[in-house]
């Protein structure tokens, strides 16, 4: 039995998981998410890691490999660091068996990643550096509308006449939203409209990456049921063969993916060590 850990330092939260690899397969022993709230990500990661160890009754020295991803380069107790896309691809493919692509929607960006059966990146497309079409954008809009982030998705599902944003620019879209509020548009319709605008952009991103079939959602917005529904609607509208699935652990996909790659590296290093030792 081998234990590995994955720590995904995102733009707004640190996600940590502890994974057990045994003969019976892979088991996620514990998971934890800590919001940054303007604190040093390295401190948040350390605190979250200690809390995860305590919650699972695990000793740090029993963990064979601590892998970080995202902005985790500054986590000093890591064993190795994996590129965010590599980790999300592996995690998404693990959570949704049979996934041909992973759509990683984080706080500040979105990536459409086509993966092979082993969760390796085959090709990808990502949004440019703009806050629209990201978790941070949704969070801002929720704040303006007085809606908690957790309520955004379910409220969006109640929409009966969605009002689409006219722009993909976050600043202009926020102006759109202010106009909608002043025109008396229902909050649910505003949220659904935003979800559809974002979904349209993400579907185009997936098309550009030549993605087809099952798409696993990952990242913070994977938990947004309103976005998942909007993605399905936009895919059908554009005639693409894309089916979106969000696993309950999707928000931990990056952390899980890095913990899985950690096991891969442990196995590989175990094979390399004799050769290295022989070479001095």
């Amino acid at each position: 039995m081998i234990l590995t850990a994955g720590i995904d330092v995102g733009s707004s939260a640190v996600k940590s998981v502890l994974v057990r690899h045994g003969d019976e397969g892979v088991e996620i022993l514990g998971r934890r998410m800590d919001r940054l709230r303007h604190r040093d990500p390295a401190d948040v990661a350390r605190e979250g890691w200690n809390a995860l160890l305590a919650a699972t009754g695990t000793r740090a020295e029993d963990v064979g490999y601590i892998a970080t991803t995202g902005e985790g380069e500054r986590v000093e107790f890591r064993t190795g660091h994996f590129y965010g896309m590599t980790a999300h691809a592996r995690g998404g493919a693990f959570l949704v068996p049979g996934a041909a692509a992973v759509l990683d929607v984080g706080a500040l960006h979105c990536r459409a990643i086509v993966v092979d059966a082993g969760g390796r990146v085959q090709r990808y497309r990502m949004t440019s550096q703009c806050a629209s079409g990201s978790g941070q954008f949704i969070e801002n809009i929720g704040r303006y509308l007085g809606v908690a982030l957790e309520e955004v998705g379910s409220l969006s599902l109640e929409s009966d006449a969605p009002e689409k944003c006219s722009s993909i620019c976050a600043v202009l879209a926020e102006t759109d939203v202010i106009n909608m509020v002043s025109r008396g548009i229902k909050t649910a319709n505003i949220l659904k409209g935003i979800h559809l605008s974002m979904a349209g952009r993400f579907v185009k991103l997936l098309e550009a990456a030549d993605a087809e079939g099952l798409v696993a959602l990952s990242g913070g917005l994977a938990a947004d049921v309103g976005l998942t529904a909007a993605l399905g609607e936009e895919a059908r509208r554009s005639g693409t063969r894309l089916e979106f699935v969000s696993h309950p652990d999707a928000v931990y996909a990056g952390a899980i993916g890095s913990a899985l790659w950690a096991k891969y590296r442990l196995d590989k290093l175990a094979r390399l060590v004799p050769a290295s030792a022989a070479g001095g």
Binding site: G80, H81, F82, Y83, G84, M85, T86, R120, V121, W261, Y264, R265, K268
Partner: peptide, 13 residues
């Protein structure tokens, strides 16, 4: 950073 990260992973994985 993105390029180097992807490169490092392509070697290690």
């Amino acid at each position: 950073r993105e390029q180097a990260g992807a490169f490092a992973d392509s070697i290690r994985l």
